[in-house]
Nucleic acid binder design. Structure first.
Lengths: 333, 333
DNA sequence: TTGTATGCGTTATCAC
DNA sequence: GTGATAACGCATACAA
């Protein structure tokens, strides 16, 4: 790779002049031409990393996600990418594989002058390593999951209401034994969705049966196991609410394998509108989060922070969800 | 952020000594203790980017994909990540959004000492920019898509046979008017899959009807439009073969919306086993690519190249596919 | 306007 | 073993 030095030599100027040319400062027209020529000739282009070492700006942002391989993550990332792209930022995506260790590791990599800012969907409620990022002066915004004991910018969806509306819709169709496949309670949206479930039951005077609360990992296996556990009960639930896209898919699969008919033998209300939920018959009722908007808003906040605008810290955007109710929830009398 | 210089000062040694400690060279025990102490005290950790500037090694690899948001991409990436992780490499994922311009741009970013090697799923058959990467000495391996006029390491699946077997299975169930939703013919696997289709027809003495070949973008819209176009024909096909995961989903959607019953009114054979294909009834017949293996093999080749082992260049791995035939293909007599 | 010198955080090469 | 010091590729203050 040709460097700025090579360009200086070939154009018979100096590195200073070349650098000034590259950064748009005024230089003599003669030199400009010679430098242009040399750059083309050497196929030179600027090394943005080395530049970042000096300027502390790389025009790159890091995105760290606990699991890349699902609709939620990739949709949100697409939303972010739109915005970042429009503002001239490149994105670098990393997967923490649901491991706090990996999360710390990748965050460290980002901090090493690799990126100008970070969007993080944290693995869980741990806060110390995030706080260190903040103290280092690197802008960071949380996405989808806030962290309980941390002041930090963030964009989340209104999980409590999302879950509440779902459970309410189930109740309105006449169900009383409503189960939830909840997520780990050290994860923020999982907490909130369980809270929404509980609140709805309370508002409609339905007593909570703790056997109907299955705390699972937010994975397909988690959803699958949840169904399995409910189905062997003496008095199984008539309707089941799942807490995210993956548990919904897992639950669907388990129900299918047991030969049960959704909307007849058992009712299902999921979270996040995957293709599966839309294309299967009956369609699955779901809470829909504005995934791309979550991505876009996170990006917008981060950009404003990277520009040095720290007004209103911490900004927490809580975006509204919608529900789609289908025949996957049976109307009972 | 504390630097090596701060550590040297606090531990009353020199940057040289600290660096040697950090890199595992022998140093006096007294100093070792003092340095350890200082590192802990300052919460220092090494800046891998600055180090990379000097050593030309960052233990990071770049992965560039034309579209992140689908099963294919994320599954393959998971496979890679397993291997890279085991070898101590971090991965950085970028999306070229199906744009050659973006592909060049991101490749440039990678080349700027950001990564030690690259895995690329190219947008199309353009080769010049890839050749420049090779000439710069940066190892690169192509994934899923080879490039026609380029010598380069690569891992692909056996698309010709995959498509052949699918079409053969359709023929064996008695179909004669078999359509294909093919991809753009400047994309390698799309070429190969069309070739497999043609070859199967030829081997079974079925004349090619060019109206039954719909060249679409490899997107949901592409698949959707393909179906739409076939359905308005005077003599529509009885079976349709789609070229990738996205066109399969789009085709499925279009068929659903038209109220046609798969396996009755029309037969469908897809590519890539998404959740949708498995969970819908009847299940969709598909060609299954070994996604994670594609990822793992690409990673293994890249690692060996990054270690300086260039034997057998160019290595091209062509992995076998499997087919699953279901009642989505009607048996006609 | 221009070139030179210095520094970003690290490693590597020296003498010592 | 150790401590200065020169690189890595670039930006920038400064003197010219």
């Amino acid at each position: 790779m040709a460097t700025i030095k090579d360009v200086a030599k070939l154009s018979e100027t100096s590195v200073g002049t070349v650098s000034r040319y590259l950064n748009g400062y005024p230089i003599k027209t003669v030199n400009k031409e010679k430098i242009k020529e040399a750059i083309k000739c050497l196929n030179f282009s600027i090394n943005s990393i080395a530049r970042g070492l000096k300027t502390n700006k790389t025009f790159t942002v890091g995105i760290l996600i606990p699991k890349l391989a699902n609709l939620f993550s990739t949709s949100v990332i697409e939303g972010m990418d739109q915005v970042f792209d429009a503002f001239g930022y490149s994105i670098l995506v990393c997967d923490s594989k649901n491991s706090l260790e990996k999360e710390k590791e990748k965050l460290k990599l980002f901090k090493d002058k690799l990126v100008d800012g970070i969007i993080l969907m944290p693995v869980n409620n741990s806060e110390q390593h995030i706080r260190e990022i903040q103290e280092s002066g690197m802008p960071i915004v949380l996405m989808d999951r806030l962290v309980n004991n941390l002041q930090c910018d963030g964009v989340v969806s209104d999980n409590v209401n999302g879950a509440y509306q779902a459970v309410e819709a189930i109740i309105n169709r006449g169900h009383r034994r409503i189960a939830i496949i909840a997520g780990p309670q050290n994860i923020y949206p999982a907490q909130e969705r369980l809270e929404g479930y509980l609140r709805a039951l309370k508002d409609y005077n339905i007593e909570v049966d703790h056997n109907l609360i299955y705390e699972a990992e937010l994975t397909r296996e988690g959803g699958y196991q949840g169904i399995t556990s409910f189905c062997v009960m003496d008095e199984p639930p008539t309707a089941i609410f799942t807490s995210n896209d993956e548990t919904t898919i897992g639950a669907y699969k388990a129900i299918l394998e047991r030969g049960l008919v959704i909307g007849e033998d058992i009712s299902l209300f999921g979270y996040d509108q995957t293709e599966l939920c839309q294309m299967v018959r009956p369609q699955i009722s779901v809470v829909i989060q504005p995934l791309e908007t979550i991505g876009r808003r996170s990006a917008e906040i981060l950009i404003s922070r990277m520009k040095g605008n720290y007004t209103g810290f911490p900004i927490v955007n809580r975006l509204k969800t919608e529900i789609v109710v289908t025949d996957s929830v049976k109307t009972v009398s």
